[in-house]
Amino acid sequence: MTNVQQGGRVALITGATRGIGAAVARLLASRGMRVVVNYRSSRGEADDVVASIESTGGRAMAVRADVRDASAVLGMVEQIRAAMGEVEVLVHNALIPYAIKSFDEISWDELGGKLEQEMRAAFLLTKAVVPGMTTRGYGRIVYLGTVLSRQPREGMIALGTSKAALSQFARFVAQELGPRGITVNVVAPGPVAETVISGVLDEEQRQRQTAQTALGRLASPDDVARAVAFYAGDDSGFITGTTAPVNGGLAMD
């Protein structure tokens, strides 16, 4: 493991081997942050993201951890601390597997299991990084949510329900951590091209979603990454407990 200390805030992006996570990692690195590319099993893809960052003069490292495992999360944060220092920016993007079924079809184990694992991962990661952020008097926490928390779609009850719980969790954490200089926000995309979730849509569904979107297209990972980068930087310093709907006008409050 290369020691990459010196300069730039330390940003941990979970599930950063592809899609939104990889786009966030590259963008934050391009803005001067020292980026940690977390992965669970795709070491080769993680190394590719790190290499792409380093090829443009950025600083990055890959760290393996299953974000649902308490000891793995603590070990990851300790490894980051030894190589880079305290995590100052957490972007929790890792996708926890879920069943795509209707309410009639889904079991409690499938719905409750997704809810439990979603919240466990967010809880463990937040618990692990908050002490270091508190010591520094600075922190940015960004959770990836989904438009499905507000706009149900057939078969997506497990994902939508668990992400709705995550959004409410974020508000409580934001309220408690605000006095410490730590902001907590959610970025909630609609359908995003080139991601695992987008693969759930067949062509007819994709066309319907596009037609219902005011901007006339699905989001790209880079669209979402730019919103995440805003919350991860200093321009958003007086914004906390909010959810950014990055959906091109698919859903409007």
Score class of each variant (00 low, 15 high):
residue 210 T to G: 00
residue 26 R to H: 14
residue 210 T to M: 08
residue 134 T to P: 01
residue 149 S to C: 09
residue 199 G to H: 10
residue 94 A to M: 08
residue 182 I to T: 01
residue 233 G to E: 06
residue 101 K to Q: 15
residue 129 V to S: 05
residue 201 L to G: 09
residue 37 V to A: 08
residue 169 F to C: 10
residue 29 A to L: 14
residue 6 Q to N: 13
residue 67 V to Q: 07
residue 239 I to C: 11
residue 148 L to Q: 11
residue 162 S to T: 12
residue 234 D to H: 08
residue 84 M to V: 15
residue 155 G to A: 11
residue 47 D to W: 02
residue 94 A to W: 02
residue 23 A to E: 13
residue 216 G to M: 04
residue 237 G to S: 15
residue 68 R to T: 12
residue 236 S to K: 02
residue 238 F to G: 02
residue 51 A to T: 13
residue 148 L to Y: 14
residue 245 P to D: 15
residue 53 I to S: 08
residue 236 S to V: 05
residue 63 V to Q: 12
residue 219 A to G: 13
residue 28 L to W: 07
residue 167 S to F: 00
residue 105 E to V: 03
residue 59 R to Y: 04
residue 181 G to Y: 03
residue 128 A to D: 11
residue 157 I to C: 15
residue 104 D to S: 12
residue 78 E to V: 06
residue 213 T to D: 13
residue 191 P to E: 00
residue 250 L to W: 12
residue 104 D to K: 13
residue 252 M to R: 14
residue 140 R to V: 05
residue 21 G to V: 01
residue 112 G to Q: 04
residue 23 A to C: 09
residue 222 D to C: 00
residue 81 R to F: 14
residue 219 A to Q: 11
residue 85 G to N: 06
residue 51 A to V: 00
residue 143 Y to I: 08
residue 47 D to H: 05
residue 186 V to D: 13
residue 64 R to W: 09
residue 11 A to S: 14
residue 97 P to C: 05
residue 156 M to D: 09
residue 43 R to G: 15
residue 205 Q to E: 13
residue 240 T to K: 12
residue 25 A to P: 01
residue 99 A to Q: 10
residue 240 T to E: 09
residue 244 A to I: 08
residue 219 A to K: 08
residue 135 T to W: 00
residue 100 I to V: 15
residue 122 A to L: 05
residue 32 G to E: 11
residue 225 A to N: 01
residue 230 F to G: 03
residue 147 V to R: 09
residue 156 M to A: 13
residue 201 L to T: 04
residue 147 V to H: 07
residue 235 D to H: 04
residue 203 E to F: 03
residue 70 A to G: 07
residue 6 Q to C: 04
residue 180 R to V: 00
residue 184 V to Y: 02
